[in-house]
Design a protein around this nucleic acid. Structure first.
Lengths: 190, 190
DNA sequence: ACCCCATCTTTCCATTGACAAGATCCGCCC
DNA sequence: GGGCGGATCTTGTCAATGGAAAGATGGGGT
């Protein structure tokens, strides 16, 4: 019906992902409306269905993208810095600079947790944490497992508290220093 | 008003809360349907409106109840046990034994975060953590603040990872020992 | 030139949250 | 003890949503 607008969008899939990201940033993943995303992207309300199947499909695609970005961020941090604590800081910084992605990543009921690409992206990010923890306490792998868990819990929890608004950095300080003050509390050995 | 049996249904408000809890446990807070709750409770689809205003009202009431229960659990743990690490274990145990409450508690977009009773209940639980941390590192309060934050992040994160299904205890061990192995990694001084 | 098919639209339906107005029943006060 | 006020619950209605079905469009391969 809309004359002058090309029938075939250039890259509608990416446009929908970006639009959805904006909507999630505004009202959270739970309140995401497919029709609203379609409206903002200037397409019919059924266009997203073709690319993502349903709402869970769209959110799963966003979550997968998020885990991939997180894995990239952790990789970059590991290459620049030898410290395990800094890896945790990178985790928290990712969460606060990509709040929409992170919100979708930890919305279990809204995402298809058994999606193949999702699981692969999660494992890619998890491997980065494992590698960092291995350097942290050189020793036994069984000990390293709980090191990873403690570190992951710590940074995941801090990220969650920040995004849920339960905690915010003191005026004058930034998220990075707040995260650093917390991650350095983890003792390598118990 | 009406301390006894409020007219037709016994105590509809409590019945709706309990029913909503079941629904949340099954499909998460985001998928909660007011009409479904009303159906299960055997009342008309508009009955919940009178008690909670709207969907956010119902979830806010559940979140408030959850924070109150958490404060109670932390209080009980503090009375029985002097260890700060055990307070963290109690936090994680609360999250895993009341998954529906905990899920609603950390669903920021679905709950009215500025509700007076909600905020009061949150602060009551927070005060319990503060008290425990104060005993942990007797010293300067500015140092204690980051101790609380680190501990809270740790147990909040572990709870989240457990409920999101990203982590589960090894076969043969339970959540408590898993939590203990993690909370004991927190060094009292950095 | 032709046809296949991925892409996008239009139409339709059941469900949902919210509101308005009416019905039902309780406790209270005279 | 009888009506009155108000809390509790129901019925009716509306716009919006997610999803399915079927049609329109045009790009690209043969």
């Amino acid at each position: 019906m809309l004359v002058g607008v090309p029938y075939h969008h250039g890259d509608l899939r990416r446009a929908l992902l970006d639009t959805a990201l904006l909507a999630v940033a505004e009202h959270g993943p739970a309140a995401l409306s497919l029709r609203d995303v379609a409206r903002r992207a200037g397409v019919s309300h059924a266009a997203p269905t073709h690319h993502f199947g349903d709402k869970a499909g769209l959110l799963t695609a966003l979550a997968t993208e998020g885990w991939t970005l997180l894995a990239d961020a952790l990789t970059e941090s590991a290459e620049q810095n030898r410290s395990f604590a800094e890896l945790g800081v990178a985790y928290v910084l990712f969460a606060t600079t990509h709040p929409a992605h992170f919100a979708v990543m930890r919305a279990p009921g809204l995402v298809r947790g058994d999606d193949a690409e999702l699981v692969a992206a999660q494992q890619r990010a998890g491997a980065r944490l494992d590698a960092g923890a291995g350097r942290h306490d050189g020793g036994a792998t069984s000990h390293t497992a709980t090191t990873v868990l403690a570190a992951w819990s710590l940074v995941h929890g801090l990220s969650a508290l920040l995004l849920e608004g339960m905690v915010s950095p003191e005026p004058g300080t930034d998220v990075a220093t707040l995260a650093r003050s917390v991650t350095t509390r983890l003792s390598p050995r118990s």
